[in-house]
Amino acid sequence: MTDFAPDRVLVPELGRPRADEALAYALETFPDAEIVLLAVVTPLDAPLSEGGVLERHEERTAEARASATELLESAADSAATDRVRIETVEGRPGTVVPRYAANEGIDHVVMIGSGTGSDGFLRRFLGRGIAGTVVERTSRPVTVLG
């Protein structure tokens, strides 16, 4: 446990492997905090967009929300998940996560770091991973799980 007791913790859900670890960490480490599971829909023109098939905005947003809901439902402690609220936002994760944290009264951010999914070795090597960008751009404390 930690002495730091945030009221609101943000867990970005970027459609990546191991997102469940970030949610589990937030639930366990901050047992009294409200957890915001933020489903981020990356624009199709962004370099990290999820495919070549153009989908309608509404479908992509619904899929991101469904992915976050599935992640929440798979959380081990269902009593703790009562503290979790799912929000959906569209944009580049390195921009929208810090903006959401600042505008919505978030006290702490918990996320998976570089080296997972499409945020692999080259991005980590070049220092352009999403987690690094979030750390750089937000004034809130960020816990990055490796």
Score class of each variant (00 low, 15 high):
residue 88 T to E: 14
residue 105 G to Q: 03
residue 96 V to K: 01
residue 139 S to E: 12
residue 29 T to D: 06
residue 33 A to L: 01
residue 110 V to Q: 02
residue 42 T to V: 15
residue 130 I to L: 10
residue 104 E to A: 07
residue 110 V to G: 12
residue 122 L to A: 13
residue 138 T to N: 03
residue 116 T to Q: 10
residue 107 D to M: 04
residue 40 V to P: 03
residue 133 T to S: 14
residue 39 A to H: 09
residue 29 T to K: 08
residue 67 S to Y: 11
residue 23 L to N: 07
residue 55 E to V: 15
residue 31 P to T: 07
residue 91 G to I: 10
residue 114 S to H: 15
residue 51 G to M: 12
residue 37 L to Q: 10
residue 44 L to F: 12
residue 129 G to C: 05
residue 35 I to N: 01
residue 79 A to D: 15
residue 88 T to C: 05
residue 28 E to V: 04
residue 122 L to F: 12
residue 98 P to G: 03
residue 114 S to M: 05
residue 64 A to C: 00
residue 70 E to I: 00
residue 57 H to A: 15
residue 132 G to H: 08
residue 109 V to W: 01
residue 66 A to F: 04
residue 135 V to T: 02
residue 96 V to Y: 04
residue 133 T to E: 15
residue 48 L to G: 09
residue 119 D to T: 12
residue 83 R to C: 02
residue 21 E to A: 13
residue 22 A to N: 09
residue 74 S to I: 06
residue 46 A to T: 04
residue 79 A to V: 09
residue 24 A to I: 08
residue 131 A to P: 04
residue 76 A to D: 13
residue 80 A to C: 03
residue 86 I to F: 02
residue 48 L to T: 09
residue 97 V to W: 01
residue 62 A to H: 06
residue 36 V to A: 02
residue 121 F to R: 13
residue 72 L to G: 08
residue 62 A to P: 04
residue 41 V to Q: 07
residue 73 E to R: 13
residue 65 R to D: 05
residue 88 T to V: 15
residue 26 A to H: 09
residue 133 T to D: 13
residue 100 Y to T: 02
residue 133 T to Q: 15
residue 120 G to D: 15
residue 104 E to P: 02
residue 34 E to N: 01
residue 32 D to F: 11
residue 16 R to S: 15
residue 80 A to P: 04
residue 20 D to V: 06
residue 44 L to W: 09
residue 112 I to H: 05
residue 70 E to G: 14
residue 53 V to D: 06
residue 113 G to D: 07
residue 48 L to K: 10
residue 138 T to L: 01
residue 121 F to Q: 13
residue 42 T to E: 15
residue 113 G to N: 05
residue 49 S to N: 15
residue 51 G to H: 11
residue 42 T to S: 08
residue 116 T to W: 14
residue 71 L to V: 01
residue 89 V to D: 05
residue 83 R to T: 10
residue 18 R to I: 07
residue 78 S to V: 14
residue 44 L to H: 12
residue 64 A to I: 05
residue 132 G to S: 11
residue 35 I to M: 00
residue 27 L to N: 08
residue 78 S to F: 13
residue 107 D to W: 04
residue 85 R to P: 02
residue 73 E to S: 10
residue 37 L to T: 06
residue 63 E to C: 07
residue 135 V to E: 09
residue 25 Y to T: 12
residue 110 V to R: 02
residue 131 A to D: 09
residue 50 E to T: 14
residue 139 S to A: 14
residue 19 A to H: 11
residue 92 R to G: 08
residue 96 V to M: 04
residue 137 R to D: 11
residue 75 A to K: 08
residue 109 V to D: 00
residue 51 G to E: 11
residue 71 L to H: 06
residue 113 G to I: 04
residue 124 R to K: 14
residue 90 E to P: 03
residue 77 D to Y: 13
residue 131 A to W: 02
residue 69 T to E: 14
residue 138 T to P: 00
residue 44 L to V: 09
residue 58 E to T: 12
residue 42 T to D: 08
residue 44 L to K: 08
residue 49 S to T: 12
residue 87 E to I: 00
residue 18 R to V: 11
residue 123 R to M: 12
residue 75 A to T: 09
residue 59 E to P: 00
residue 70 E to N: 07
residue 101 A to Q: 06
residue 54 L to Q: 11
residue 69 T to L: 12
residue 32 D to R: 09
residue 53 V to F: 03
residue 24 A to L: 04
residue 114 S to G: 15
residue 120 G to E: 13
residue 61 T to V: 13
